[in-house]
Computed example of a mutant assay.
Amino acid sequence: MSTTTRLLHCPPEDVFDVLADGWSYATWVVGAARIRDVDRDWPSVGARIHHSVGAWPLLLSDTTSVEAVDEPHMLQLRARAWPTGEARIVIRCEPQGDGTLVTIEEWAASGPAAKVPQPVLDPALHARNVEALKRLAYLAESRARRHDDSGGHGGVPRLRRPGSAADPRDEA
């Protein structure tokens, strides 16, 4: 399993707001070329992002689905990119001081990629996830900088997901 961490200078809620915006997936996930659709209940368990990976004209269209979620602390995904296989990704957001320590754990779960020895696969996954966390940091930290003086959520409305309680800071 490849494990990559980065300290982001924003609260876990700002990080999770980016994770919960399925349409932003191709902005921070290295290799995702475009988003074709996002299930309305993303990031609920079973919800999917319909994406394409690769570079034109060599694009593979597949899906990433949510296997588990503990907002705003953890999101577990199963990313498909057949014929190469499927990966399992766990993203953890742990408060640390004024920021959030974000950890991405990723491993090949099935298909041809799962046959590659982990010591061979890990350096490539780690390098990709270093860049992914850099991009995620740009998005989440930018959101955090937009916080207004009234203690609201950056003047940016929080995403309202089915079954999620309203953030009391939104009412300010």
Rank of each mutant, 00 (worst) to 15 (best):
V90D: 10
S65T: 15
M74D: 09
L59M: 10
A68P: 03
I104Y: 02
V53H: 00
T3F: 06
L125G: 08
R92I: 07
V130F: 05
H50G: 01
T4E: 13
A127Q: 13
A127D: 11
D21T: 15
A79P: 00
P57Y: 09
R143Y: 04
I104W: 03
V29C: 11
A26K: 13
D167G: 03
V120F: 12
D37S: 13
D170C: 07
S150K: 12
R6D: 09
P117V: 05
D21W: 00
G163R: 01
P117H: 09
H147M: 06
L136C: 04
L139T: 00
S150Y: 09
I104K: 02
R160Y: 01
P168H: 03
A109N: 05
L77F: 03
R88A: 15
A109E: 11
V116Y: 05
W42R: 10
P123A: 00
W42V: 10
Y25Q: 04
Y138N: 12
S110G: 08
D170R: 08
V90Y: 07
D62A: 06
P162A: 09
Q96A: 11
S164R: 15
W28K: 02
D122S: 15
E67M: 01
R143P: 05
D14V: 05
E131A: 14
R160I: 10
T84K: 03
T64L: 01
R161I: 13
W42Q: 07
P168Q: 06
V53A: 09
I91F: 08
S164C: 11
D167H: 14
I91P: 08
P162W: 05
A127E: 13
S2R: 01
T4R: 08
S65G: 14
L8E: 03
N129G: 13
A172S: 01
T103Q: 02
G163L: 03
A137H: 12
P57W: 10
H9W: 06
S110E: 08
A113K: 00
A113C: 07
T103R: 13
G46Q: 06
A55L: 12
A127L: 14
Q118E: 15
L8Y: 04
V130E: 10
E106N: 08
H153N: 13
G151T: 10
